[in-house]
Amino acid sequence: MIDARGLVCPMPVAMVQKEVKANAPKEVEVMVDDQCAVENITRYATNAGYAVSVDKEGTDYRLTLKK
């Protein structure tokens, strides 16, 4: 799981990009605490061919990226 809580854009997307480029995983979980990061990761992951689901957990968001 990528923990990008407390990081502002573009860092959360950069962390996801690094993981996707390095390992091309079929599934990735990302934790963020910023709505802007949710939007940016969703856009990046969708463009990279992932289906994205978002679950709100308190003030955090859990994004599940699946290919």
């Binding site: 573009p10 990009q17 940016n40 990046y44 463009n47």
Partner: peptide, 19 residues
């Protein structure tokens, strides 16, 4: 809209994202 003069060029360079 998250409008940002730096973000447009930065995201284009980093992610190919031109939003």
């Amino acid at each position: 809209s998250r409008l940002c003069m730096v973000g447009g060029i930065r995201d284009g360079m980093m992610f190919g994202d031109f939003k």
